[in-house]
């Protein structure tokens, strides 16, 4: 059974697709989510093999969700949309397939063949995706969207990933790896990313370690391993 996740902001659309997938029988629908943020959590937790993804969704759309998934977890993606506003042909190359709502059973069966074939080739496809423009963060019971250029540093702890900016610290579901590859933030430590534009000075310590002082006075550790790459990115 292929483990599938449905992401669509409309209840009936989710239910309809779930019923169809179950009827065909090749899938185990491990969940259905109403928005990208919910989906992100489930993807990290459940690691689905296939994602049926609506494009038009509140706050973060389907494309944005794609760019926030860790490449190591990237499922095969089938876009499901009501109308061809996004010039889907262009995305056909970049994702596995796309379906137009209302989904026809025959068309869905074709997609399933594609999915099966793709799964034999690779578990985690490599989709081209644009950079992240807004980092979704949770703050109290609100969703906050922070632009990467506003971020000073990102810190990974046991409790999760924290984005630190001028307005404080916020928790995010995104991983350091995703943020490193899809934004201009630079890795300086196993647990830290830093915004190069926010660096005030880099203090070199003994043992090949370092310390970054940000413009607002925050201190970010630099590990031996990343000092060199940091120097390279700063062209020092």
């Amino acid at each position: 059974m292929i483990r599938a996740l449905i992401v669509d902001d409309e209840l009936h659309a989710r239910e309809e697709l779930q019923i169809m997938l179950q009827e065909i029988g090749a899938f185990e629908v491990i969940g259905s989510c109403a928005n990208a943020l919910e989906a992100l959590k489930v993807i990290y937790r459940e690691r689905p093999e296939v994602l049926f993804l609506d494009i038009q969704m509140p706050v973060l759309n389907g494309f944005e969700l794609l760019s926030m998934i860790d490449p190591d977890l990237m499922p095969h993606v089938v876009f499901v949309t009501a109308y061809d506003t996004y010039a889907l042909k262009a995305f056909e190359e970049k994702t596995l397939d796309y379906l137009l709502k209302p989904v026809e059973k025959k068309r869905l069966e074709k997609t399933i063949e594609k999915v099966l074939r793709a799964l034999q080739e690779t578990a985690h496809p490599l989709y081209e995706s644009p950079g992240i423009r807004r980092i979704p963060c949770v703050f109290a019971n609100r969703i906050k969207l922070i632009a990467p250029q506003e971020v000073e540093l990102v810190r990974s702890e046991l409790s999760g990933v924290h984005v630190v900016g001028p307005k404080g610290e916020f928790f995010t579901d995104l991983t350091l790896r995703v943020l490193e590859t899809r934004t201009d933030l630079v890795r300086c430590h196993k647990q830290y990313l830093v915004n190069l534009d926010q660096i005030d000075e880099i203090v070199l310590l003994e043992n090949g370690l370092g310390e970054i002082h940000t413009k607002s006075g925050r201190v970010v550790p630099v590990s031996r391993r990343y000092l060199k790459t940091l120097r390279d990115s700063l062209k020092l």
Binding site: E10, H12, A13, E15, E16, I19, A82, Y83, K101, P102
Partner: peptide, 17 residues
């Protein structure tokens, strides 16, 4: 057209239940 698509999709889904 957009409204119509959305409406039909919804109705198609509701029809089953």
């Amino acid at each position: 057209p957009h409204f119509l698509f959305n409406a039909i999709n919804t109705i198609v889904a509701v029809l089953r239940k």
